[in-house]
Amino acid sequence: MTVPDESERLVAWGAELRAVHARLRAALTVVREADGSDAVATRDLLLVCHGFCVALTQHHQGEDRQLFPAIAAAHPELRDTLMRLQQDHSMIGALIASLDAVAGSDEHGSISRHLDGIAAIMESHFRYEERSLISVLDALALDAEPREVLGSL
């Protein structure tokens, strides 16, 4: 087994973030396709949606718990950026909680509206995060398991 040199390991954080975001975007697409299908029962849609929401929540919790503190320690000038990203995490968490609250209503339209809100904030958040942090991540020394830091999706 070949052990990557330090620069290869460090660059992996930026690539890993992009890959996780791509997988979350793809998972949202699956949820949206299920939402638009007449063949998918509401309870099945909720099951698919729940999996996506759990993955997105775990991703944000890992960033808040491990990634952002490491970035803040190495780059104090990014504290405002990290605070804005954490506010996005809270907003998305509130939207997910709202979705959970209407989940039992069997209203496809209500689920769609909630997914629209989550999708809009998530995409804006991902783009801002990637623009603001990829170069920092490419040089970040963080000795941690990527799945613990960025989620398991």
Rank of each mutant, 00 (worst) to 15 (best):
Met83Cys: 05
Leu46Thr: 06
Ser152Pro: 03
Leu153Tyr: 10
His59Phe: 05
Leu140Val: 03
Ala120Met: 03
Leu133Ile: 09
Arg43His: 08
Ser152Ala: 13
Val40Arg: 12
Ser37Asn: 15
Val40Gly: 07
Ala15Trp: 05
Leu85Ile: 09
Asp143Leu: 09
Ile111Leu: 12
Leu82Trp: 05
His108Met: 07
Ala94Pro: 01
Glu16Thr: 11
Arg84His: 07
Ser152Ile: 03
His60Tyr: 09
Tyr128Trp: 02
Thr81Arg: 02
Val3Pro: 01
Leu56Asn: 06
Gln61Tyr: 05
Ala103Tyr: 00
Ile92Ala: 15
Cys53Lys: 00
Leu115Asn: 01
Val20Ala: 10
Met91Tyr: 07
Leu28Gln: 03
Ser110Gln: 14
Ser152Gly: 14
Ala70Ile: 02
Thr2Ser: 11
Ala27Thr: 00
Met83Phe: 04
Leu150Lys: 05
Val136Cys: 13
His21Asp: 06
Leu47Tyr: 14
Leu45Gln: 09
Leu150Gln: 09
Arg65Met: 15
Arg79Gly: 01
Met83Lys: 10
Ile71Pro: 05
His60Asp: 01
Ile134Asp: 14
Leu153Ala: 11
Asp100Val: 08
Arg113Met: 14
Ile134Tyr: 07
Phe126Trp: 10
Arg18Ser: 15
Leu115Gln: 03
Ala103Asn: 04
Ala22Arg: 15
His59Ser: 06
Ser105Gly: 15
Phe52Trp: 12
